Simulated assay, not measured.
Amino acid sequence: MDGDRKSEGSGRRARGELESGVLAALYGADQPRTARQVRDELPGDLAYTTVLTILSRLYDKGMLVRHRAGRGYAYAPARDEATHTAERMRSLLEHGADREAVLTRFVSELSEEDEQLLQRLLSGHDGPHPAGRADEGP
Rank of each mutant, 00 (worst) to 15 (best):
A78R: 15
A74E: 09
T85P: 00
Y59D: 14
D80M: 09
R13E: 14
R71I: 04
T49K: 09
A29S: 15
L64A: 06
A47W: 01
Y75H: 14
R57H: 11
Y27Q: 03
K61I: 00
T50R: 14
G21N: 04
Q37L: 04
E19S: 05
Y59V: 00
E87D: 14
V22W: 03
Y48S: 04
V51W: 07
S56N: 14
H67S: 11
T53E: 09
Q31A: 15
E19M: 12
M63E: 14
R33L: 15
A78T: 11
P43F: 05
V22T: 08
A69F: 06
R66H: 08
K61D: 15
G70W: 04
L42Y: 03
A78M: 11
E87G: 06
L52P: 00
G21C: 04
A74L: 03
L42S: 06
D40S: 14
A47H: 13
R57G: 12
Q37I: 01
V38P: 06
S20M: 13
S20T: 14
P43I: 04
G72K: 11
L42Q: 02
P32T: 06
E17P: 00
Y73H: 15
M63A: 11
R90L: 15
A74R: 08
S56V: 01
Q37C: 03
A29G: 05
R66V: 04
R33P: 00
E19W: 03
R15F: 00
L52H: 11
L23H: 05
L18N: 09
E41M: 12
L26N: 07
G72H: 10
L26H: 04
D45N: 12
G21M: 13
Y73E: 07
A24Q: 10
A82M: 09
A69Y: 10
P43D: 14
T53K: 10
R12G: 07
G44E: 08
T34A: 04
D45M: 02
P32S: 05
A24I: 00
Y48G: 01
A47N: 12
A82Y: 00
Q37T: 09
G21P: 00
I54R: 14
T50K: 07
D40V: 01
L46T: 01
M89F: 15
G70Y: 06
V65A: 08
L26S: 06
H84W: 10
Y75V: 07
M89R: 13
M63Y: 07
R90S: 11
Y73C: 10
R68P: 09
P43L: 07
T49V: 13
G62C: 08
R33H: 06
